[in-house]
């Protein structure tokens, strides 16, 4: 059988319809020359991909990252800073920093200092764009780990071990537990002046969103889900797959260590 090079190329690229594909598969089985020609096409593709895979690791220049990190000119309420991928909360009026969309997680995981610097820079840009000062202080219950913001040790312990609504009086309190659309297990939390969402990632809890509660809010705040800051509620609404975990599902997740 005589197939054109273009046909064999399309076969190697998976572009043929099922009938022709089956025909060529059958022909390959009994025709070594045909098999070699197809293999050459596949091999060239793999060779190109290998040769160019390294380019994906080169760090994008800051000017390009800045273009994508800067809040959009059409962004909503001042004081709301939303990183890419997490919808701005409608009408949210607190200082909110949304972090670590599912897609940027991949990028962040390849963790280089410059990526971390870019994330930090976008935080600072967001902060200064807000009309209320938002200080990232040592008191925020977060830590940086390989370029990703994660819950610090105390908050991490609460997220891993505390049922919703519990937590020591002074320490973190857990609000809602849910599974996100990207399949992560996430929990909302409040801790002194902060409220946020963290999602399980291996042994860590990635901070997906962090917001500063104002003093009045914080003093009257209780851990009930209905009292979560509006921005957090909106983010959960946008992110949740189905319903929040009920008590039984949460207990099971606690026992499994949120794996």
């Amino acid at each position: 059988m005589n197939y054109s090079e273009e046909t064999l190329m399309a076969f190697a690229d998976g572009e043929l319809d099922a009938a022709l594909r089956a025909e060529i598969e059958a022909a390959i089985a009994s025709d070594l020359q045909l098999a070699l020609r197809v293999a050459a096409h596949k091999n060239l593709r793999e060779r190109l991909q290998r040769a160019y895979a390294g380019e994906l690791k080169s760090e994008p220049p800051q000017r390009l990252l800045d273009m994508l990190a800067a809040p959009s000119a059409t962004a909503g309420a001042p004081g709301v800073q939303s990183a890419p991928g997490v919808p701005s909360a409608p009408g949210a009026d607190s200082n909110v920093i949304a972090l670590d969309s599912r897609r940027s997680k991949k990028a962040a995981r390849t963790g280089t200092p410059r990526r971390w610097a870019a994330l930090a820079a976008s935080l600072v840009i967001g902060v200064t764009a807000g009309y209320v000062g938002f200080e990232i202080t040592a008191r925020a219950p977060i830590a940086a780990k390989q370029g990703v913001l994660v819950a610090d040790a105390a908050l991490g312990r609460s997220l891993t071990h505390s049922p919703a609504g519990e937590g020591s009086a002074a320490g973190p309190k857990i609000g809602i537990s849910y599974r996100s659309k990207s399949g992560d297990l996430c929990r909302s939390f409040t801790e002194s002046a902060f409220a946020g969402i963290a999602c399980r990632d291996g042994d860590d809890w990635r901070i997906r969103m962090l917001t500063q509660r104002d003093a009045a809010d914080a003093s009257q705040y209780r851990a009930a889900a209905s009292e979560l800051p509006p921005a957090i509620r909106a983010a959960i609404d946008a992110d949740i797959a189905g319903e929040p975990l009920d008590a039984a599902a949460e207990r099971e997740a606690l026992e499994r260590g949120w794996r």
């Binding site: 962004a75 939303s82 890419p84 919808p87 701005s88 409608p90 897609r103 990028a107």
Partner: peptide
């Protein structure tokens, strides 16, 4: 709201795509 959502979603996608965009542009 819809506009902000799509814009924010697009920015996130673009961040993830950036390495491929640069690779294509270099070729």
């Amino acid at each position: 709201m819809t506009t902000n959502d799509s814009s924010a979603e697009m920015r996130a996608e673009l961040v993830a795509l950036l390495p491929r965009l640069r690779r294509f542009a270099r070729n």
